Amino acid sequence: MTLTDVVSVEEWEALVREIQDKYGLDCSVSDPDGGHVTHAGKWCNDLCPEIKKCPEALGSICATAAQSFTAQAKQTHQSVVSECDAGMVKISVPIFSGDEFLGTIGGCGALFEDGEVEDFLVQKTTGLEEDKIEELISSIKTMPETKAEECAEFIESRLKELIK
């Protein structure tokens, strides 16, 4: 069974847009292997697209976080709310149909109120200059941890409505 056997791509897209509009995160729905079924299509900050277009940064920051968060969500059957290696908020909510793990839905790209971007890691993996990274960091919105937890709960409740 796949994610699109349970919910149509259009419904996943609508949910991703709803999460992004409500919480300001870069959202996606991914299969168990990390392949995107859908993605919001607009960035919530200027740093993330720079990270994602550099293969080394994508692999060491985004892919690593996605794999780790997916494994934890699958194992615990619980949402994971934490930070990626670059220091930004990442939320991963597991999607199950019965006992079958279908993937995750979540978002990333904000900064916890007391958090900070790991600019050294970003610089080493992207090759961007320090002043450019600082400029890109300034576009990142902050999010209280309680708001991130609220987002995970919102996604969980919407999943219950979609997957019956």
Rank of each mutant, 00 (worst) to 15 (best):
M1W: 09
T2S: 04
T2C: 02
L3H: 08
D5R: 07
D5N: 14
V6M: 04
V6L: 04
V7A: 00
V7N: 03
V7L: 04
V7G: 01
V9T: 00
E11K: 15
E11H: 11
E11L: 11
E11T: 02
W12Y: 06
W12I: 00
A14D: 05
A14N: 11
L15V: 01
V16E: 03
Q20S: 12
Q20V: 02
D21K: 14
K22H: 05
K22F: 05
G24Y: 11
C27S: 02
V29G: 01
V29L: 10
S30A: 10
D31Q: 15
P32I: 00
G34T: 03
G34V: 02
G34S: 12
G35L: 11
G35C: 06
V37C: 00
A40L: 02
A40G: 01
G41I: 02
C48I: 00
K52F: 09
C54W: 10
E56V: 07
E56S: 14
E56R: 15
A57N: 06
L58K: 15
L58E: 04
S60C: 13
I61K: 11
C62E: 13
A63Y: 08
A63F: 04
A65Q: 11
A66F: 09
T70D: 07
T70A: 11
A71D: 11
Q72T: 03
A73C: 08
K74G: 03
K74L: 06
K74D: 04
K74H: 14
Q75G: 03
T76R: 14
T76M: 06
T76K: 11
Q78M: 09
Q78D: 07
V81G: 01
S82A: 10
S82Y: 12
S82K: 12
C84T: 02
A86D: 05
A86F: 07
G87H: 11
M88C: 06
V89P: 04
V89R: 12
V93P: 10
V93A: 09
P94F: 00
F96M: 05
F96L: 07
S97N: 13
G98W: 07
G98E: 07
D99T: 13
E100L: 13
E100M: 13
L102P: 10
L102M: 09
G103W: 08
I105P: 04
G106C: 06
G109Y: 05
G109K: 07
L111M: 14
F112W: 09
E113H: 12
G115H: 13
V117T: 02
E118S: 10
E118A: 12
F120Q: 13
L121K: 15
Q123D: 03
Q123G: 05
T125W: 09
T125R: 14
G127Q: 14
E129Y: 08
D131Y: 09
I133V: 06
I133D: 11
S139R: 15
S139Y: 14
K141W: 08
T142F: 09
M143D: 03
P144Y: 12
P144G: 05
E145Y: 14
A148Y: 09
C151E: 03
A152E: 08
A152V: 00
A152M: 08
I155W: 12
E156G: 00
S157C: 05
L159P: 05
L159E: 03
K160Y: 08
K160M: 10
E161L: 15
I163K: 06
K164H: 07
